[in-house]
Design a protein around this nucleic acid. Structure first.
Lengths: 336, 336
DNA sequence: ATACACCGTGAAATCGATTTCAATATATAG
DNA sequence: CTATATATTGAAATCGATTTCACGGTGTAT
């Protein structure tokens, strides 16, 4: 049913080899034959069979992306960056949603093994550095967003979580807050862990004792933030500011506060992380930390495709991108 | 470098054909040979090459999804449904973001033509019915979410936009509202068009004259809703309720109101569509219309895979799923 | 004991492109 | 006008699996 290269060849009165040369823009084809072939392709509506092409050329022109949750704006922004860069270089993108499960992440990595994809981008992966290195050692292309992995073949793009986290908390402290809640994400997540580290560091910097009862986990989603807040209220602990490891959880905090008639920022200052698209539309507008998510996806993808296309050992492998604390209406100096 | 089927065969002391039979669960292999082969596969860490398999079997075990914007929760929820169902049936999913551009939608459809994917799911496509039918006529598998297309080979899943839209507006009218704004999405979108139709129908039902100045376009995103609202304020038109063709635009409306100290719902009732994950977290909680997005993705995918796997002409092709108007805190009876 | 069916296995063809290598046609130099 | 270099082209091998077909071996019926 489908048109094959031989059909085009016979219609154009040439050999399949020549048709292939035209398709792949080899320069050693006469203009005359080239036009003959192109006409035949047009007339027959010929599309080269991808499987045959992949088999012979040993590449699929596809890359995989493994994200923890494609419902979360953090991941989709990054994926857009990946997708656009890939598309520009004629690569397809296979998106996999690991649903925050380490096992599903592993299963998807198996996709790589059968050469369905030429390489894989891991966004904030849950599996260990060792496991990732092993895959790269086997000769597969891997790139990481959101973590730094020490392997010469693995390009990495990330921000300094500890640093901006520290900045956020120092900002709150400088505005008079001392009783600052931290709502973390998944325990297994590097991001979550490092943001906690920055929080603790800032407290230490200003010699404010760490109060464990102000630490809660919200699993990076709205409901988690909401429930974490309810637990805090139940504890009857005193606090004047809440720092959430992402914006989704901050939204949950907003809801919990609305239910208790706690005013933001008058009664409580709130800061999130990610600069989620909605953060500037909610009331009050949410203070947060911006990461160049789209760019991170794009940079890494470009780098990976580069690396896949030639074995030249490149200079730059690790990209640390800047993040920026954005203060909006959701926080104010204490007692003002 | 890679292990091939012949390597497994020689290690197990059998022919490649037998290895293939084991891999594909043919039942005509002795238990003894089967275990021998499986051991060899294990020891060598063999993964069948996808390209070779695809070429010979004439299928890629992959389906494509074309969405207008993978940053929008409406699409990602559906995609999750598609992804999970596909995964369960061992299909990979290639996700394409058309960025609301009809041309990019067409370009991605070309992926289908080279057999990279076995079929494609179009979510709220922008291209015409005719174009879609043509593709199906050429023998490609296509499924549609969010529109009904009259072609016996194309499974469709959608809700009755006109109906729920009418319900929403009638609800507002029954609560005393007569001056109701409608903020539409993309002009080209069927969803947007049909929701407008429902709006108009409800007005007609209650003999309320249509006021064109209460009609604005918000392009389905937060900023569009925000700007639409500002234009309405500038017009100085009188209205007591706003119906947005999706929740994102309603969020923009919230922001515009906050800036003018217009209270929701006291001064203005707001209703959206989609039951976006955030709609019950914002303040006040947003009234909206729920569609079973995940289920829609899953149903259609199941149906498509079914259809791809046997040519049996199935009974049910069109699935109309129920939508439900959810009234939350963002609207109240007029003058109460 | 003979004939026939059936089961397990291997050899070889096949999927549809790309690519190597050799052959032919053309161009350039002497 | 011949000899050599170069530009185009085609035949055939190749990528790595699946699948058809044929063959030998075992089991059952007559």
């Amino acid at each position: 049913m489908d048109i094959k290269i031989v059909d085009v060849a016979s219609k154009a009165g040439v050999s399949p080899a020549t048709v292939s040369r035209v398709l792949n823009k080899a320069n050693n084809v006469t203009l005359k034959t080239r036009t003959k072939v192109m006409e035949a392709i047009q007339e027959l509506g010929y599309h080269p069979n991808a499987a045959a092409k992949n088999l012979r050329s040993q590449r699929s022109m596809a890359i995989g992306v493994i994200a923890q949750d494609i419902n979360s704006a953090y991941f989709t922004e990054i994926i857009k960056g990946v997708e656009n860069m890939a598309y520009a270089q004629k690569y397809k993108v296979i998106i996999c949603d690991s649903e925050n499960q380490r096992d599903k992440e592993r299963e998807y990595l198996n996709l790589l093994m059968d050469r369905t994809i030429d390489g894989v981008v891991l966004i904030a992966p849950l599996i260990s550095d060792e496991e990732i290195c092993q895959i790269a050692d086997k000769g597969y292309s891997v790139g990481i967003i959101g973590r730094n992995i020490n392997h010469e073949k693995i390009p990495c793009v990330f921000t300094d979580n500890v640093k901006f986290s520290q900045q956020v908390v120092l900002y709150l402290i400088e505005n008079g807050h001392r009783d600052i809640v931290f709502i973390s994400g998944y325990a297994e997540s590097t991001d979550s862990y490092e943001r906690l580290e920055g929080y603790l560091k800032a407290l230490r910097d200003r010699q404010i004792p760490f109060r464990p009862e102000l630490l809660e986990n919200g699993d990076f989603n709205e409901d988690g933030g909401y429930e974490a807040m309810k637990r805090l209220f139940a504890k009857n602990a005193h606090f004047t500011a809440v720092y959430c490891a992402n914006d989704e959880m901050a939204l949950g905090v907003y809801k919990a506060c609305a239910e208790r008639n706690i005013r933001i920022p008058e009664d409580l200052s709130v800061i999130g992380v990610d600069n989620n698209r909605i953060s500037k539309y909610i009331t009050p507008t949410l203070s947060t930390v911006n990461q160049p998510k789209y760019t991170m996806g794009a940079i890494l993808t470009e780098k990976m495709i580069d690396q896949m296309n030639d074995d030249v050992h490149h200079d730059k492998r690790v990209f640390v991108v800047d993040s920026e604390v954005i203060i909006r209406d959701s926080c104010k100096p204490l007692g003002e």
